[in-house]
Amino acid sequence: MSLSNLIDDWSRYRKGREEGGFHDYEHMWGMSIDLNKCIGCNACSVACYAENNLAVVGKEKFEKGQGMHWLRVERYWDEPDLGEERTSEFQQHGASFLPMMCQQCNAATCEPVCPVAATYHTPDGLNAQVYNRCIGSRYCSNNCPFRLRYFNFWSYYEDSWPAPLQMQLNPDISVRDMGVMEKCTFCVQRIRTVKDTARMEDRKVRDGEVQTACSQTCPTGAIEFGDMLGMYDPESGVAETRVTKMWRKHQVELGKTKQNKQTPDMRGYRVFEFLNTDPCVMYLDRVREV
């Protein structure tokens, strides 16, 4: 039964944390984003629109902050302090780009506040959003420290996909209607397809078999996606995936509020790690010649 099941999953995870960090998940999908390679070109964001039936809301609604970009590329300017209250005349080190999507927190702050359990943790380690269950209380979005949940304030279908644009809609994922919260799912429909295929062939999912739309399109290959379960459960038989290697190399571990790195200069970090939401997305420092 769904509700008992998700409560069970949740308790299992909490219990796992108390007992040393591991819990019996099927997969643990994770990501690594190299800001040294990210050029801020927006390809990932548009790929996400194409893959996930994201509504185009138009200028007026965008102004009100109702844009539905599950994956947004944030751009920050430096404030170089030259001393004596002077700042640089130009942005001489360029911009800082940050692709931001749902961080799929293991201790997600959005999950416990949902009054109808429409958002919960799956045995894949994903932070799920069940659209037909959602009643639109928006508590989850209020509780998300990353502001990565997007609410359907309107019914966008007619305006966003005038015929024949609706023919492009991906049938593997529903078109959300008014009153429903939505967010990045790590392209769960792709995960599902690959898992189904693997199950039909009686084998395990291979590394690199699931690619999210953003990681597949990324012009510089800055985004890596894969199963990280092998890192936490060597017994699971999940081989060391590319993304696991990245996390290990950069000495970032799940389930920690503060990383204790042997090589403190390794670039991996998680945004707002100190909030203890335990995100599954690791960023690698931007590098600049100074």
Binding site: M1, N5, Y120, T122, Y131, R133, I173, V188, Q189
Partner: peptide
């Protein structure tokens, strides 16, 4: 669906069947 899944040990995770 749910009764059958229970009786036959089918998965009961929401995201198995909801998209």
């Amino acid at each position: 669906c749910q009764r059958c899944h229970q009786a036959n040990d089918g998965p009961s995770d929401c995201w198995h069947c909801h998209k």
